[in-house]
Every structure is written in structure tokens, then in C-alpha cells.
Simulated assay, not measured.
Amino acid sequence: MGEIVVKIPDEIERYLTPALRKRIELETIKEIEMRIRKASRFIKLVEKSELTEEEAEKLAEELKRDLAKRYGVI
């Protein structure tokens, strides 16, 4: 399995207590695990999909557009 490194800017790191550093670490691990579970479920669904390549590309474009709107890019 790969390694994930979280870099904290120096100007913030100097304010972190050991307890706060541990809390950030645990919350980061929890969030990553949740996202991996979601990705795993998504992959299982996609493997069963009967979409054509053209339909999948159209869906991907719609998802990109929706994500861009969600995050205020467009």
C-alpha cells in the first residue's frame, strides 16, 4: 500500500501541540478511509455497469461540469 504524507506549513506547525497534532492525524486518517470506502463502492458499481464508452464519456463530462459548479470554478 502507498504512503500518504500530509505537510503542514511551518507557520501553522509551530502552534500545534502534540495533542492537536495527533487529532489532526486521526481525523485525516478517518477522512481518507471514508473516501477509500466510497471509491471502492464506486468501482464495484462501475464494474457492473453496462454503459457504452460514449455514454460513459458523456456522463464524465456532466460530472466534471457539476463538480466545477459545486466548487465555484464556473
Rank of each mutant, 00 (worst) to 15 (best):
M1N: 08
E3I: 10
I4A: 02
I4N: 00
I4S: 00
I4W: 00
V5L: 07
V5S: 06
V5E: 06
V6I: 14
V6P: 00
K7E: 07
K7T: 07
K7I: 06
I8K: 01
D10M: 02
D10T: 05
E11C: 03
I12Y: 12
E13P: 00
Y15W: 08
Y15N: 07
Y15R: 01
L16T: 01
P18W: 04
L20N: 05
L20R: 09
R21H: 07
K22H: 07
K22N: 09
K22Y: 03
R23Q: 09
R23E: 10
I24A: 03
I24G: 01
I24T: 03
L26G: 02
T28E: 01
E31I: 04
E31S: 10
E31G: 03
E31Q: 06
E33N: 06
E33I: 08
M34Y: 12
M34W: 09
R35P: 01
I36M: 10
K38I: 13
S40Q: 09
R41S: 15
F42W: 13
F42M: 14
F42Y: 14
K44L: 13
K44A: 14
L45G: 12
V46R: 08
E47P: 04
E47T: 10
E47F: 10
K48E: 15
E50Y: 03
L51P: 00
L51C: 05
T52A: 07
T52W: 05
E53N: 11
E53T: 13
E54V: 14
E55H: 04
A56W: 03
E57C: 10
E57S: 09
K58E: 08
L59E: 02
L59F: 04
A60M: 04
A60C: 03
E61D: 11
E61R: 13
E62M: 07
L63R: 05
L63E: 08
K64W: 04
R65K: 15
R65M: 11
D66E: 15
L67K: 10
A68T: 08
A68H: 09
K69C: 07
K69I: 13
Y71E: 15
G72E: 03
G72I: 05
V73M: 11
I74E: 14
I74F: 11
I74A: 12
I74W: 10
